[in-house]
Design a protein around this nucleic acid. Structure first.
Lengths: 243, 243
DNA sequence: AAGTGGTCTAGACCACGGC
DNA sequence: CCGTGGTCTAGACCACTTG
């Protein structure tokens, strides 16, 4: 379960417009209603509409032309990831046009390595909870996701953790922590045998590694995520408005 | 008031605040003045201040806490890239803490390959201008940047092109085109001998490839950029606010 | 000239956190 | 409680594109 919060007007407008783009009410390449028209139709101020449109434009969903109008980007469907969502692996899978699912592999408790202790600001040897999961695109395994979280942060019994939840909800439910921001490192690595066991294909080929450090509001590192990413199957492509 | 007319008020506020973070006027981890105080100090409305702060927060420069205040992120300097700027290679180099410079290698005219013609919406065999450049971090070559642009778009003599300019200015000056948005594909590849010749190190190792397609406002593809990126030296790391 | 998006303002009220 | 950021409004004026 998730904590349900009434969404802001901006987010609701954003959702409505994205849905209209997705279901074809607003066709790729076509002009959508003006800010004033949307403002009147949806019953919110023009400023609210503009905030939502700015977000859509930043992610390349729409193109805005001063003096002309706002158009749906013809290449919407080619982008698989969006800014502010690089860590959201399920969205990455669905952005590639597949149905995402999560397989829970294992959860273990072990001391932190020196490198992990440094990143997570721990004493050497402090214990971590290591969560290993496998993301599927339809039936194909595509991302091996490891998350390491300091054991000392855990608030609920280890056994109760549901390994299929969104990482956001795992932090919320079992650690009572809210993630404020993340730092993601994108690297190119060779596929190791241990990973190849899960993702298949030939070992030794180049693949992407997304390393994410999760922080809470006081800059305390909450977790280290290492996501091995088969980019021969899944693509990491981003649309960006030119500022 | 130091706000002048040339740039937008929001951009100027953004610049002023970034500078204060960078030169240490606002120290990492410290609280910066409230929105009202900034609004009064800089002589703009609170809405203008908020727009600038939202941009800084999205890029992880600052952390905002409702009911408390706005704080400079302690990890500002660890991020090397920023949203909406993934194509800006010089900024990527300086984000890693190095001094960027560009070496102009070559400019050639040749027919498009089938794949290029498809991406750039050309007839097979149409001619391209191929610009090859090498980006340095201090004295170290780090990014091999190839750009392919349809010859038919060129407005000035080929010989006049200054290969050291920002890609934005090249389009502006020689093609009279403005880039509206880009699509960037991030891939993991093995370093080929041809590239290794420029970037050094051992051939066959995994490296990053950023492939960027540039579009103008009518969705016409302007250019294809392929940037080979030595991520053993340069890091691609992004800070993102958790939405 | 008309209509669009781009910018900015002044002010209202809410939700949250620290004192 | 007060001050902070979060949200939203109504309206003004500008810059640009199109007919």
């Amino acid at each position: 379960m998730r904590i349900i919060q009434s969404k802001s007007a901006v987010d609701q407008v954003d959702e409505i417009l994205q849905e209209r783009i997705w279901d074809g009410s607003y066709l790729p390449g076509s002009r959508i209603p003006s800010e004033s028209e949307l403002s009147e139709e949806l019953g919110v101020s023009r400023a609210t509409i503009r905030t939502a449109l700015a977000k859509l434009a930043a992610n390349g969903f729409i193109l805005r032309k001063q003096g002309d109008g706002t158009y749906v980007n013809e290449h919407v469907r080619e982008a698989s990831a969006h800014f502010g969502n690089l860590w959201d692996l399920a969205e990455l899978v669905s952005g590639n046009g597949y149905n995402p699912s999560i397989q829970f592999l294992s959860i273990k408790r072990r001391p932190a390595t020196e490198k992990e202790a440094l990143i997570l600001a721990l004493e050497a040897g402090e214990e971590l909870i290591c969560l290993r999961r496998l993301f599927y695109a339809d039936q194909q395994p595509v991302i091996l996701a490891d998350n390491a979280i300091p054991f000392s942060l855990l608030c609920e019994p280890l056994e109760t953790i549901d390994g299929k939840l969104h990482i956001r909800d795992i932090f919320d439910l079992y650690f009572h922590q809210k993630i404020t921001y993340v730092m993601t490192d994108i690297r190119s690595v060779v596929m190791e045998a241990e990973v190849q066991e899960f993702l298949g294909g030939e070992a030794g080929r180049p693949i992407l590694q997304l390393q994410t450090i999760f922080y809470e509001k006081n800059n305390l590192p909450l977790a280290l995520g290492v996501n091995i990413f088969d980019d021969s199957f899944l693509h990491l492509s981003l649309a960006q408005a030119w500022s």
